[in-house]
Amino acid sequence: MRLSMPSKMPGLPVLVLVLLLVPIILNDEFYLDIATQMALIAATVVGLNLLVGYAGQVSLGHAAFFAMGAYGSAILTGTYGWTPVPALLCAALLVATLAWLVGRPILRLKGHYLSMATLGLGIIIAIVINNEGWLTGGPDGIPVQPLSLMGFELSIFDEYHLFGLVISGTHAWYALAGVLLVLAVWIAQNLIDSPIGRALRAVHGSEVAARTVGVDTSHYKLLIFVISAVYASVMGSFFAHYTGFITPQLATFEHSIELITMVVLGGMGSTYGVIIGAVLLLLLPQLLTDFHEYEMMMFGLILMLTMIFMPKGLLPTLSALVKRHWPAGVRSSGPEG
């Protein structure tokens, strides 16, 4: 599963096509609203997948980085009157520093210690956000101002005029989130194809072997850990501006687990797979509402069965299925990857 993925993929055009088709097929404010959130979370998960799928490390505290981005933006713009872009960058810098400080000593060790460390760090951050109400609004949450750049404000409650077209705020935000997701994927793909990515795949294969041939594994792992944390922070900032209201629940351990689940469900190491994972996991609560009190049971059951019967994740399993039934010659460029 780890090394079999081809790194050159026809996926990006397909992703763009899907993103363009969504508002045409589902021309509905509610669906677009959900799709916008999905794109932002999917971008987060694409970053997390770099860590899980390529560096072979599990972060059990990624939601805390996401929340730090969200709260950083909320507090700096709301309480201290900053404009959103510097606030976002400042929060990301803070997250990067924290990830670096924790990751540096931990990633020198072999094994799964990063998951323990991020578990601890994540929960401490969640507790601080919950307790320091004077700064964060406490458990009841905090409102966030709309996104703005150089005086231009992007709010889902406004309408925008562009070349004589009237675009609703929801559409505009969807477009922004789509661009962010494509950017996130593009950056991730380039990282994977870079020397760093190759070194990391070597690490995932066998750390000792990689080290023997002179790859400084801990250095690369640290780099990728910091990058994935920044992914989370930046998307957290956008998510906060988009939803307009955030609570400490964003930082919880359960939310971290949710993010990891998206990666594993979609397929570790498959950039497009984890996007599908994110979309499905966010869609499930909406789809299962009719089960009412059986909702939780169904959710657990679906998660369990999917992982039992598709242990490599949705996309890798499906693409393997496609390959088996369509020999390579017949198959045109499908969206597998």
Binding site: I260, M296, M298, G300
Partner: peptide, 21 residues
């Protein structure tokens, strides 16, 4: 045959399932 991380996610699914029941 699955990866350990996958098995862990299965136990998470099982936990939610048991809690749901």
């Amino acid at each position: 045959q699955a990866d350990v991380v996958t098995l862990i996610i299965i136990t998470i699914g099982a936990a939610i399932f048991l809690r749901g029941i």
